[in-house]
Design a protein around this nucleic acid. Structure first.
Lengths: 338, 338
DNA sequence: AATATGAACGCAAACGCTTGCGCAACCAGG
DNA sequence: CCTGGTTGCGCAAGCGTTTGCGTTCATATT
């Protein structure tokens, strides 16, 4: 019913070994014979069974990609870019979407990825146990999100520096009461929120501004969370005149909350985001751009290099450039128009 | 080096067959023995090699998902939802991202998916040849995007009816000159643009409005395309007073173009979108909501049902509900305020 | 002319699992 | 006590490749 390697062997009058060698470009087959075999294979519509071939060879030609939420812009974009690199190199991509704690737990206990992939690109930061589980797979590992782990090839950005440039922009405009919408580091174990917060604190200190804990609100890195957080900040006795949101999605939530409160942006409140979401330009959001797709591409490329052998030792962390983008959601504080 | 089934067999003092049966819940193993085997397997950290097991059994416990652009919100969201269903059922997901024509061609000629999956969920509409290639895989097929194909389980929405409700809303507000930002059907072979256009034309006819071809602009289903298209429409001698964008992303591009032209929405121009993108609420876009994640879930579920056997015949197309959502980008035409 | 060399190909043993079949050991019913 | 039927388990034959090694044969070397 399904055509196997012996079918094309018989059709060509050679052994299965020769077919295998011919189709995989190995030496030991005359060019003439190779051509005949390739033709026969094409005619019969033969494709080698990956199960059989990886069982025999030990190589799966498959990369595992584990991500927290494929639906989120950032992860979808990274995945998109990485997949293109992998598939162009002849690798398939096995996707694990670990949004819920249950899915995550199931994945790390059962480890269905074991013996199924040649390498893993993780877009979530595993906690120490999880990292150990991944390491136990014995394959090259990479990640694109904050928080390196030993054994991982990591490509990321300078989160702290990015946050600094965003907050410094607000300070330079004359803002003194600057809020921050952040996200918890805990459930995902990533250091991004911490790094960005540090950048925020650094600039405040540098400007001689006493940080006020009530100005930090949790937005959970979602639009709704950002809206809630902004609402909380607006309910303060002394609300901020400017807000640094740790992600554009939260910034957009903040914009929505501001609109609901009939506050104008940037006249009444300035907002600056982080990431340069694809729709940030649409809403005119001032933000810090990071090369999301490029990070996915680069991480994928590095993984392939490690797979190719020689580079047994994982390379140093790669840092991609970031860029502050001035748009229309920031201005000097109210009553301070120049 | 890696622990195999014989390792746990030896550890328990039974044969490999018994281990296999025990671990897979087959009958023919005493409960006591099963418990011992499960314990030993857990202790050794054993996971069955998928390659070996699918080679032997013919089942891969893997679903292939092919999508045009994982990075795009719609597809990412569908994929996210579908993956959750699959992984909860014990299936892995093999992802094929076919954005570029080359990737697409490579996929359909090499068909790397052959012998690798038990079923395929296609989020792109294959042309007849491609559909034939997929059918030749001999596994259940499903899709969630407009344009059924024989052999496919399809779950979708009433694109035409959705477009009708959007345009009717504009007509009811008093608009007579209504533009449309659409997308070509060709490169992707989907019928969605055609269906939505038909809904647009139906309502115009119903309202006794002569359709004007210059009011239709191509936005390619992207933000930038929507912006370009809106700009074209604004350059017309008689620009529209309202625009129906076939997707929210194009609608957002249109909003941006309008802002650049210093036109107010909805006072000067009304805009209505389609899809209910996650950020549409943020920008207050009036739109037609479709249950994106639910479609992914449902398609995945139906695929699993077909995999379970009995339903050899593919079920009838499933139509998910849509819902018109009134927000803030639509109003009566200028000078016609009530 | 005899031998060494290498290319081209076949043989057969893995790879790690699944599964039909066979074979004990046990139970109940006659 | 002997059937007939379970139940619990082992045997061994695959599943479709890959690959080390052996064989054949033509060519180059003494």
């Amino acid at each position: 019913m399904t055509v196997s390697i012996t079918d094309v062997a018989e059709a060509t009058g050679v052994s299965a070994s020769t077919v295998s060698r011919a189709l995989r470009g190995r030496s030991g087959v005359s060019e003439e014979m190779r051509a005949r075999i390739v033709a026969a294979a094409a005619e019969l519509g033969y494709t080698a069974s990956r199960s059989a071939s990886s069982l025999a060879s030990g190589r799966t030609y498959t990369i595992g990609v584990v991500v927290p939420y494929v639906g989120r812009w950032f992860f979808g974009t990274v995945l998109d870019a990485a997949e293109k690199v992998f598939s162009a190199a002849g690798y398939d991509v096995l996707l694990y979407n670990l949004g819920s704690p249950e899915a995550r737990k199931r994945f790390f206990t059962k480890l269905p990825i074991r013996k199924r992939v040649d390498a893993v690109l993780s877009l979530l930061i595993p906690d120490p146990e999880e990292a150990a589980a991944l390491c136990s797979l014995g394959v090259p590992l990479a990640t694109t999100v904050g928080g390196a782990r030993p054994g991982f090839t990591v490509v990321g950005i300078d989160d702290r520096g990015g946050a600094e440039s965003a907050v410094r922009h607000l300070v330079n405009l004359g803002h003194r009461r600057i809020g921050m919408i952040s996200g918890a580091s805990e459930p995902l174990h990533w250091t991004t929120p911490l790094d960005r917060r540090q950048g925020y604190l650094d600039v405040l200190a540098d400007a001689g501004i006493e940080p006020d804990p009530v100005l930090e609100a949790d937005g959970g890195y979602t639009v709704e969370g950002g809206e809630r957080a902004m609402t909380e900040l607006l309910a303060l006795r002394h609300p901020p005149t400017a807000v640094f949101a740790q992600s554009d999605e939260m910034a957009m939530g903040a914009l929505r909350a501001l609109r609901r409160h009939r506050l104008r942006v940037p006249e009444d409140v300035s907002v600056v985001g982080f990431d340069d979401h694809e729709l940030s330009e649409v809403v005119g959001l001032t933000t810090v751009a990071q090369p999301v797709a490029a990070q996915g591409r680069e991480a994928a490329r590095l993984l392939l290099v490690r797979l190719d052998g020689r580079d047994a030792v994982s390379p140093r962390p790669v840092e991609m450039p970031i860029r502050f983008i001035l748009r229309e959601t920031t201005a000097p504080p109210h009553g301070n128009r120049r």
